[in-house]
Each structure stands twice: as C-alpha cells, then as structure tokens.
C-alpha cells in the first residue's frame, strides 16, 4: 500500500471548512481508522478549521499520513493562520472560555478528540495547531 502524499487546502470560507472535513475523512479512511476514530478526527478538524477561519481570519490546512516508531499509521493535520495569535494559551484551552460567541469547546474539545495536540502561537503573527491521531 502506497502512502498518499500530503495535501494542502486554503481555508477562507465556510465551504472550505466542509472541504477540510472531506479531506480528513478520506485520509482517516485511507489510514484504516475505526469509524469512531474517524468521526473524532473529522470533528476535531471541523472545530479547528472553523477557528482558523473565524478567529485566524483564514489560513491553510495540511493533512499528511504519518507512521510512528512502532510502525503504527496515523494522520497529522496542521492548521495555520496569520491572524492575531492567542495572548493567553492556558485560557484559550480552558473549556467554556470563548473570545467570540461560541461555546468555548473548539480548542479544548478538539484536544480531547485526538492523541497529540500542539499549539504554537505568537501575538500579532499567527497560530498553528497540529493534531495527530493514530490507528489502534
């Protein structure tokens, strides 16, 4: 089985958020994830893509297939924007905290739905959130 190359997509509209879901669905299916894990990863991607669009002012997503040291397959997704950045990361990761009109579940919820979660942000420069989910 050949590993598909990484795919990138710009996020600049609500339709793009839907496209990100479809891209992640294809990748998760290709990696051989269970239906529940696929659903979790797509849901996390949907939350993060919306953040990129709404709070980051748009950006891009990169979806790639990865293999860990034990040979286990996974999908890694990186969302990046050149938006305002997050001044207080701990606060942003707190469940229920929101800077907009949302429920405050986006970041904290997405983090629970994946295996690895990494957030890099700089005020005035932008934010990159990278998540990984491994097959079981």
């Amino acid at each position: 089985m050949t590993t598909p190359p990484p795919e990138e997509l710009a996020i600049g509209s609500g339709d793009d958020v839907v496209r990100v879901r479809q891209l992640v669905r294809t990748a998760a299916g290709h990696a051989g994830m269970s239906l529940v894990d696929q659903t979790k990863l797509i849901t996390a991607a949907s939350e993060l893509a919306r953040n990129t669009f709404v709070y980051g002012g748009g950006g891009a997503v990169r979806v790639e297939h990865v293999v860990n040291a034990r040979g286990r397959a996974g999908v890694r997704i990186a969302f990046s924007d050149r938006g305002p950045g997050i001044p207080d990361v701990d606060q942003a990761l707190t469940e229920g905290w929101t800077s907009g009109g949302g429920l405050g579940l986006g970041l904290s919820g997405a983090r629970r739905l994946v295996d690895e979660f990494e957030l890099e942000t700089e005020v005035g420069k932008g934010t990159t959130v990278t998540v990984t989910k491994w097959t079981r």
């Binding site: 659903t39 979790k40 939350e47 469940e95 429920l103 919820g109 629970r112």
Partner: peptide
C-alpha cells in the same frame, strides 16, 4: 444519531 457521533459529542463536551 449515529453511535460514533454520540460518542464523539460526549467526548467533545457537548
């Protein structure tokens, strides 16, 4: 509601 959706919603915190 599909079972996978229900599981995910609870984990999401909703």
């Amino acid at each position: 509601m599909r079972p996978a959706v229900a599981i995910t919603l609870v984990e999401l915190g909703l």
